[in-house]
Design a protein around this nucleic acid. Structure first.
Lengths: 303, 303
DNA sequence: GGAACCTTTCAAAAAAACTGAATAGCCATG
DNA sequence: CATGGCTATTCAGTTTTTTTGAAAGGTTCC
């Protein structure tokens, strides 16, 4: 047994026959002569050992098996068409896959609708989301695990060779849970007062680079968590205190679950950035570079 | 532009080349001569207008576009193989789809693992689950909406022409919520006492047949619900009282959420049945007829 | 430098697909 | 019930596509 007798020509023939209603009409549509279709169909029927058409009546009627091959075959034909155009795309500079490293300061879910839109247009380009924290996000880019990263500035290593696109500014706010002792203080709170409570810190995911830490590190009590989401939840639960990015907690400030506290430590604003290998002209990379905006990331806050 | 230049032969060629590592080895595996592969590949490259192999080095290396076609092509080849064998199956008596009507007295989820097993074996045979209640389940079979039904006996219309397979016996228990006034009665409860409380009744889904009702109908107060699951939940919530099938409430009896009450009305045991059109020799039907057992339905209770 | 691979080219041969005319069946119409 | 118009199939011959094998040209490895 050599191999599968089902051919793409058969699938196209079945489709045309079903659409036009007869061998004759289908033949015309396919720029062939009816006997050519008979030949195509009979060949497969013989090789497969089953009937695709019921010839008892004089108008050929598809058998259930024929119908199955038609139905599934349409999907296969569609796949092959998509595949051909995707192959052309890739040959003309679209990457087969794009890996996006997202720093935990952003909500990866913000990118979902963007990725969905992209995938609609480019079904065979796989998009991978990878999570990182602080220097760890940069490390993804540096060690080749990601093609594009989304991070905050001030974290980039001194290394050359990376293109950086700055997006909107982000603000950090020092907040505590609504039940927290500091929540009631209306005046500026001193560092000593803050030192009474554990600080929640997001742990850098880097393996090789020097880990960075944001905010105070000279506090004695410190709880580290793997992601910004954990930090937010920990602070809401009252486990500790610390700065949180405004765009991630707007909702909780509005609802009152988190309360801002004035602190002496100046708020150092910083920027959301996109970064990628210099010289990477991939079109998928470019697409995301254009489409990832402050709005998409939820940074367009009126403060 | 006639049509897609990608052929199944190309996909098979790419697969072989990738597996064997060279045109020469692949050619051997495909019982061809190397130049035949060159021809196949070059033809598609020319028609598609892109390179599938990088010939700058001496050993041909697949381009990203070639790799994409290979990767997706493997899936397509697999699909076509499955399709061929499924078509043979259907031609030899397996139905393209099987519609199973399940009476609300059973938990449809009991069939899930069975359906999963079936689908593993017969990926192209679609299984539909349809819900019905009382005569409505029979109606599914009679009006051709279902090929196989799962019901309780005593509901079958007098009509001829249906094959019935009896499964295990099912018991009904009169139960009330744990907080219900009747829950504390340890002696037999009279009909008058029961009449104090609304009875929960599953409404027959039939459109054409004479609707049946199980249990008492001469009670004044009656709440009808669409499914057995609703009835169970209503009784747990204390909304009313009534008989419930033991196999659906074993768990709640054990946990004490439902409490059995002795009643004068005799418990009329009835049987789970499978029914289908006489003369239906479909193999999928047969498969389910064999595999749907008392155990699968959760009827194998030690009482 | 030579042996052992590899891929490609090319003309010829083989195989497959297609054609057109003839055949035969059904069905609606008059 | 005959006829014309539709259908699909058969078959022999033709065209197109695919395959072949020998020759040529490269790379790698020893």
């Amino acid at each position: 047994m050599a191999h599968n007798p089902i051919t793409l020509d058969l699938l196209r023939a079945l489709d045309a026959i079903d659409q036009r209603g007869s061998f004759a009409a289908a033949a015309t549509a396919l720029h062939k002569v009816p006997s050519a279709l008979t030949y195509t169909v009979q060949k497969v029927e013989q090789d497969l050992g089953i009937d695709l058409f019921d010839r008892s009546g004089h108008r050929a009627k598809m058998t259930p098996a024929g119908r199955l091959i038609l139905d599934e075959g349409r999907g296969i034909l569609r796949d092959i068409d998509t595949l051909a155009s995707s192959a052309k795309k890739i040959a003309s500079g679209w990457e087969p896959e794009l890996r996006i490293g997202v720093d935990t300061i952003f909500e990866p879910s913000r990118l979902f609708s963007l990725i969905q839109a992209f995938n609609q247009e480019h079904p065979y380009i796989k998009v991978h989301l990878i999570h990182g924290a602080l220097s760890g996000t940069w490390e993804l880019l540096i060690n080749g695990s990601a093609d594009l990263i989304l991070s905050g500035d001030g974290l980039d290593p001194k290394a050359e060779g990376y293109e950086i696109k700055r997006l909107a500014e982000m603000k950090r706010v020092f907040v505590v849970s609504k039940d927290h002792p500091l929540a009631s203080k209306s005046c500026t709170v001193s560092e000593e007062e803050i030192a009474e409570y554990p600080t929640i810190v997001v742990k850098d995911t880097t393996q090789l680079l020097a880990p960075k830490t944001v905010g105070w590190t000279r506090h004695h009590r410190m709880v580290t968590v793997p992601t910004m989401q954990d930090k937010i939840e920990a602070q809401i639960a009252g486990l500790g205190v610390g700065f949180l990015p405004l765009h991630r907690i707007k909702h909780y400030l509005d609802s009152g679950d988190l309360v801002p506290v004035k602190v002496s430590q100046p708020d150092e604003p910083f920027k959301a950035i996109l970064a990628y290998q210099k010289g990477n002209t991939g079109k998928a990379l470019n697409w995301f570079r254009e489409h990832i905006t402050a709005e998409v990331l939820g940074l367009d806050l009126q403060v």
